[in-house]
Amino acid sequence: MNPTYYDRPVLKAPHWGWNVVTYLFLGGITGGLGIVAALADPKTPSGRRLRKTARIASLVVATANPPILISHLGRPERFLHMLRTFKPGSPMSLGVWGLVAYSTAAAASIMIEDDRLTALQAILGAYLAGYTGVLLSATAVPLWAAGKAHIPAACVCSGVASACALASAISSLTGNAEAVGKLERLEQVATAGEAVILIHFNASGGPRVRRFVGRVAAPVALSLVAGLVHVPERHRRLRTLLASALTLTAGYLFRNALIEVGKRSTTDPQAGFRQPR
């Protein structure tokens, strides 16, 4: 074992708490809904309804993001300082501009029906869901740095799954059964993708990676199982709502575990001595 300096950590722990967790979670949903809106088939009535649902929900969630983002700043009144510069090399700077661009596109696409605008919103949405992962992995925090490819990919999967969960819950309550079925299938695919990424991450990483995966394994597995359970037709809506709740909970717990286990990982001096490339 290498010597340490009184077991003092080399690295500083993140100062981030519930507001950053919530922001990462909602950012994923917002972006995922942009993808869902683009996927919905405008040639069918159910597709058109889904598109509208996804667009409105996305704009609502996008609007909730800035206040949460601002609340985590040490000097909240200086939020606008992020808009005085554009630094594509900083994931946080690029992300703020991405959020601004996405929100603009989301608002515009509600008013104007245009294929290019819909596609743009979907691309910006994919960016929004994924950049939160890059924002974490491009730091010195040992857990995040260890998952430089896994965490961003898992964030995209989780964002899309959560977006499908929210859209299917709304569609189920508003009687768009056709859309619910499709959304649930994509939700399953995205959650399965997330599970595969997490399993691979678990196998490739050390004890702190296993601690992280261990914390998210149960919620992800539960949301996956909930969608597979067969229920009689009259209980379909209940299952949809339950599966949606589980997927959304898993999405939140995934971000929460990232932040919490990430914080703990900074206290290990050995992890700070040799940092992942």
Binding site: T4, A129, G133, I151, C157, R277
Partner: peptide, 28 residues
């Protein structure tokens, strides 16, 4: 208490963006 192998965190960005784009394309 100095790191032996310090790494500039931003060097991990290309891998992160690539992985995110890959996941997004697969899901799309």
């Amino acid at each position: 208490n100095l790191p032996v192998e310090p790494v500039l965190p931003s060097t991990r960005q290309p891998a992160g963006y690539t992985a995110a784009a890959g996941a997004a394309i697969a899901l799309a």
